[in-house]
Simulated scan of single mutants.
Amino acid sequence: MLSFVVFVVGLVLVGGLLFLGASLLLGRGETQPPAELDRSPVELPDDRPVTGDDVRALQVSVTVRGYRMTEVDWLLEQLAQTIDERDVEIARLQAELDARTPADEEPRSA
């Protein structure tokens, strides 16, 4: 009977220590507060449009509860390609618009 009581007390003690250790390491399950916008380590240009190279140059910091680097790198590459395609399309449309002459435009009826 005494060995059973020692076993149960030991089991409760070890379980309590494991729970305490896990709580300290993993936190209480609370969500992280939103990042302050003016304290972000990620910088994008304010004086010009963002380019694909700007996105490729981003370095996102990793924390203990970080992210999967390969997924974020893939996402940033997709975003950079989309921005590059947008810039090429804008340049093409701008060149097409600049190539137009006033004679190409039809007069508007009132």
Score class of each variant (00 low, 15 high):
Met1Cys: 04
Met1Trp: 14
Leu2His: 06
Leu2Pro: 09
Phe4Trp: 15
Phe4Arg: 14
Phe4Met: 04
Phe4Ser: 01
Phe4Leu: 06
Val5Ser: 00
Val5Phe: 09
Val5Ile: 15
Val6Trp: 07
Gly10Arg: 01
Gly10Asn: 05
Gly10Trp: 03
Leu11Met: 11
Leu11Ser: 10
Val12Cys: 08
Val12Gln: 03
Leu13Phe: 09
Val14Arg: 03
Gly15Thr: 04
Gly15Leu: 10
Leu17Met: 09
Leu17Gln: 05
Leu17Tyr: 02
Leu17Asn: 04
Leu18Asn: 11
Leu18Val: 10
Leu18Met: 07
Gly21His: 02
Leu24Met: 09
Leu25Tyr: 11
Gly27Tyr: 03
Arg28Gln: 10
Glu30His: 05
Thr31Met: 11
Gln32Thr: 11
Pro33Ile: 01
Ala35Ile: 07
Glu36Arg: 07
Glu36Gly: 01
Leu37Ile: 09
Leu37Pro: 13
Asp38Asn: 13
Arg39Phe: 01
Ser40Cys: 09
Ser40Thr: 14
Ser40Val: 04
Glu43Asp: 05
Leu44Val: 07
Asp46Phe: 00
Asp46Met: 01
Asp46Val: 05
Asp47Asn: 05
Arg48Cys: 01
Val50Phe: 01
Thr51Tyr: 01
Gly52Phe: 03
Asp53Gly: 10
Asp54Glu: 06
Val55Lys: 09
Ala57Gly: 04
Ala57Lys: 14
Ala57Tyr: 14
Gln59Leu: 00
Gln59Phe: 00
Val64Tyr: 15
Val64Cys: 11
Arg65Gly: 13
Tyr67Thr: 10
Tyr67Asp: 05
Tyr67Arg: 07
Arg68Leu: 14
Met69Tyr: 12
Thr70Asn: 14
Glu71Ser: 11
Glu71His: 11
Val72Leu: 14
Val72His: 09
Asp73Val: 10
Trp74Ile: 00
Leu76Ile: 00
Leu76Glu: 08
Glu77Lys: 02
Gln78Ala: 06
Leu79Arg: 07
Thr82Trp: 13
Asp84Ser: 01
Glu85Gly: 08
Arg86Gln: 14
Glu89Asn: 09
Ala91Thr: 13
Arg92Met: 09
Leu93Gln: 15
Ala95Thr: 15
Glu96Trp: 06
Leu97His: 11
Ala99Trp: 07
Arg100His: 08
Arg100Gly: 00
Thr101His: 08
Pro102Val: 01
Pro102Phe: 07
Asp104Thr: 05
Glu105Ala: 04
Glu105Trp: 12
Glu105Val: 07
Pro107Ser: 00
Pro107Glu: 06
Ser109Val: 10
Ser109Asp: 06
Ala110Cys: 07
Ala110Pro: 13
